[in-house]
């Protein structure tokens, strides 16, 4: 059996985390290995859990998603990072790319956009 795609969820909104988890539970090839409520926690958990993908909220207290993305990308063999933002325009996408994010999704169309990105990541990992 092929291995599952391990994912860390990062968002400061418990409600958002719960509904995302409810959705991913029904996807057989996704394994939610953990969650973090801000960027600082995300750095520690990424190092500890070594997920293949981090789904990261853009704006959070303590440390936001862009700073956390930069710092996670400084670790050895960093994961694929997707920034999720309420605002989707050229400027927000540009900031995410500059921070080193591999993908960007709009929170208003989260599930649809995230699922297609994750399917791509899964495909590219299968070819390695």
């Amino acid at each position: 059996m092929e291995s599952k795609l391990t994912v860390l969820l990062v968002d400061d909104h418990e409600g958002f985390l719960n509904s995302a988890k409810r959705h991913f539970r029904n996807v057989p090839w996704i394994d939610i290995v953990g969650q973090a409520l801000n960027g600082l926690e995300a750095i520690a958990k990424t190092e500890q859990l070594k997920p293949a993908v981090v789904l990261m909220d853009l704006a959070m207290p303590e440390m936001g998603g862009l700073q956390a993305t930069r710092l996670i990308k400084a670790q050895t063999e960093p994961p694929y990072i997707v920034i999720a933002s309420h605002f989707d325009d050229a400027e927000h996408r540009e900031h995410a790319a500059r921070a080193g994010a591999d993908g960007f999704v709009s929170k208003l169309n989260y599930v649809q956009e995230v699922m297609s990105l994750l399917a791509n990541v899964r495909g590219s990992l299968a070819h390695v």
């Binding site: 600082l40 750095i43 520690a44 440390m63 700073q67 930069r70 710092l71 990308k73 400084a74 670790q75 050895t76």
Partner: peptide
Amino acid sequence: ELSNLVERLAVLHPGGTVRARDLPSR
């Protein structure tokens, strides 16, 4: 890369001193 590394170290070792062995393996 250096700047991101130093910032990461500052976040993970607040107020501390980083030794060679604390650096990420790469």
